[in-house]
């Protein structure tokens, strides 16, 4: 008899005794003990100077530096994404010159340290004090003083953005390649040109693959932007450095700066979680994120 119609099993919800996990309790106790020890030592160690941290946390210079960091991150990512899409499309072009240019760009900007690139852009005025637009060895139509245009902020933004473009292009390229070739063929069979197909059919569908690593890049950029402190842009880290150069409260200011970075990387991570969930609708199982586990508890 195969699972008879009049089943003997009652249709109640199953109430079984769950498997016990004594190991989890032991591990939990160990972790709790360590946490108490670490927090206790941080709280009681006077040299941390928590009152100083509190004092400078919302100090004017720091807050101003924070806004410069956010501006720099946004501007550099905007340049990076626009450039990345352009370079990726160029890289996949059947025209060997166009794809070659993209290859050389990526080769150069991925092949030199971003810190060196920042310094280079800062000193570009030493290489080309002025730029003139005109016919070589002939008349000039326009004349620009580079030293006045390339301020440290602009140099930092250019360096970070142009460098990011090289990395973004690889991300966008991976997204484009992930779109089924049948989509391109169907578009071509309808008489769409290569560029129209890319813009209307392929890129929109590549977004699902492009968005998550782009979120990562943004989070990474927020922290990498601190490198422009070397050319005296008063972003978050440099703002802290300015203060501790005067007060010698180095550790306290670095803590202030770190907390601000942590706050904004957390905000960006949460944003990325929602963005990913939005673009993963109806496709594959969404990636399990720590926020998926914990956000419901926080509401």
């Amino acid at each position: 008899m195969q699972g008879g119609a009049a089943s003997a099993v009652p249709p109640d919800e199953i109430k079984a005794i769950p498997v016990r996990h004594p190991g989890r309790w032991v591990a939990g106790l160990v972790v709790a003990f360590l946490a108490v020890a670490v927090i206790g030592s941080m709280a009681t160690n006077k040299r941390f100077g928590w009152s100083v941290v509190g004092h400078y946390f919302t100090e004017h210079t720091i807050v101003h530096g924070l806004f410069v960091t956010l501006e720099l991150t946004a501007a550099a990512m905007a340049i990076g994404i626009a450039l990345g899409v352009l370079l990726a499309v160029m890289r996949l072009s059947p025209n060997p010159l166009v794809s070659g240019i993209s290859w050389v760009y990526i080769w150069f900007f991925r092949g030199t340290p971003v810190l060196v690139q920042i310094l280079f852009w800062n000193f570009i005025g030493a290489l080309y004090p002025t730029i003139a637009i005109g016919i070589p060895f002939g008349p000039q139509f326009a004349h620009v003083n580079l030293n006045s245009i390339i301020t440290p902020f602009v140099a930092g933004m250019l360096a970070l953005g142009l460098n990011e473009g090289a990395y973004m292009s690889e991300i966008v390229r991976a997204g484009i390649i992930s779109v089924d070739e049948g989509q391109t063929e169907a578009a071509q069979a309808l008489g769409m040109t290569r560029l129209l197909t890319m813009r209307r059919i392929v890129l929109p569908q590549a977004m699902r693959v492009i968005i998550p690593p782009t979120g990562n890049e943004t989070i990474s950029m927020l922290k990498t932007s601190s490198l422009v402190s070397v050319i005296a842009v008063t972003e978050l880290l440099y703002a802290g450095q300015i203060i501790y150069a005067r007060t010698y409260q180095t550790i306290q200011l670095l803590i202030v700066v770190s907390i601000w970075y942590l706050i904004f990387t957390t905000v960006l991570s949460i944003g990325q979680y929602y963005l990913e969930r939005h673009f993963a609708r109806g496709s594959r199982t969404a990636r399990q994120s720590v926020f998926q586990t914990w956000l419901p508890f926080l509401r």
Binding site: D180, G182, Q183, E185, A186, A187, Q188, A189, L190, G191, M192, T193, R194, I201, P204, Q205
Partner: peptide, 24 residues
């Protein structure tokens, strides 16, 4: 050229084995 080939394709319709509808 790419755009000339594209223009000629507008006169030829094609239906694929795997449909290839634009998913978005």
């Amino acid at each position: 050229r790419d755009n000339e080939v594209a223009r000629k394709r507008t006169e030829i319709g094609m239906v694929f084995q795997r449909f290839n509808l634009f998913g978005h």
